Amino acid sequence: MNAPHFSATRRSVLATLAAAGATLAAGPALAQEWPAGKVITYVVPYPAGGSTDVLGRNIAQRLGPLLATNVIVDNKPGATGTIGAAFVARAQPDGLTLLGTTIGPQAIAPHLMGKLPYDPIAGFEPVITIGTIPHILVTAVGQPFQSVADLVAAGKAQPGQLAYASGGNGTILQMQAELLQQQTGTRFIHVPYKGDTPALQDTLGGQVQFLFAPAAAALPHIQAGKLRALAVTSAQRLPALPQVPTMGESGFKDFVVEQWHAVFAPAKTPAAIVQRLNAEIAKTLKDPAVTELAGKLGITLAGGTPKQLGDLQRADSAKWAKVIQGGNIKAD
């Protein structure tokens, strides 16, 4: 009486095992067959000529031969990088459309702009972290501040009187100054500019008291004796400025802030493709020409696993959501 039931059950189990085996076998096969000569589009959500674009083009140029295909860069700027991000989130999850982006559209802008046409976490598969950019808290040499403690003390003594520059509302430059305010209870005036360059120029000119500046942009002026570096926002001191303390060493815990560049694919892109992309892009990061370019751009190349990028994105998203809500910060 039980034999027919057992036979049917056995057939069901064998069929399930066969299907599972086929799925497991498909992973390596997919990685070998993809992209099968099809062009890969590497979307940069910023205008041509910026650091994300320049570095992305160099990586794409070297990635193509590794995958036996062409990788073209497509600039889709606008809305602080969210237009390009939305485009990739809607793309087919076949590994032929990638997003080369930064912390802004993936961890900051979603908390500034209300409802976006994509979910910055659920809408993507993390591929690899390209690199990070530390920042330097700088002030003109004519300013009286010799340390972060001096700046904070002056801010508390003159609430709402000292001003800081940023490259615009919602930028990582503003986020860091807002984080400093919230950690210390000081109140500074935010002066947003249309870009990092004019913000740096007015800091040099003394029109504002301080700025959290990207390392590459600030270094020449520090070395020329025009800017004073009070602290760096990286976890470790910068080799180019060994005498400048970190924010942590200056007494500010949990103040490690680095802007990151990374590559994402649309959600549900097969794991085999994500892993292949991770491995091949990691090879491009070891190319001497890419290493040299990254150094000029002030980017510390990173690499790492997709999981590490996903963890970094979620941690930064939570951090900046709290800062944005606490400061009631709005995008332009």
Rank of each mutant, 00 (worst) to 15 (best):
S7K: 14
A8T: 05
S12L: 13
G21R: 02
G27M: 15
P28H: 12
Q32Y: 14
G37Q: 10
K38M: 11
V39D: 10
I40P: 00
V43H: 00
Y46N: 04
A48S: 15
N58Y: 08
A60V: 04
P65R: 04
P65G: 11
V71D: 02
I72C: 01
D74T: 09
N75H: 14
K76Y: 04
T80N: 07
A91D: 12
G95R: 00
T97G: 03
I108S: 00
A109G: 02
K115G: 05
I128K: 01
G131K: 00
P134K: 12
P134H: 07
H135L: 10
I136Y: 01
A154I: 13
G155D: 06
A157N: 03
M175W: 03
M175S: 15
L180A: 11
T184K: 08
K194F: 13
A199F: 05
L200M: 12
L204F: 09
G205H: 14
Q207P: 04
P214C: 05
L230T: 09
S234D: 13
Q236I: 09
A240Y: 04
Q243D: 13
T246G: 04
G251D: 09
D254F: 12
Q259T: 08
A265I: 01
P266T: 10
T269F: 04
T269D: 01
A272L: 06
I273N: 05
V274Q: 03
Q275M: 14
A279R: 13
K286M: 06
P288H: 12
P288Y: 05
A302L: 10
R314I: 14
R314E: 15
Q325Y: 09
G327P: 00
I329V: 15
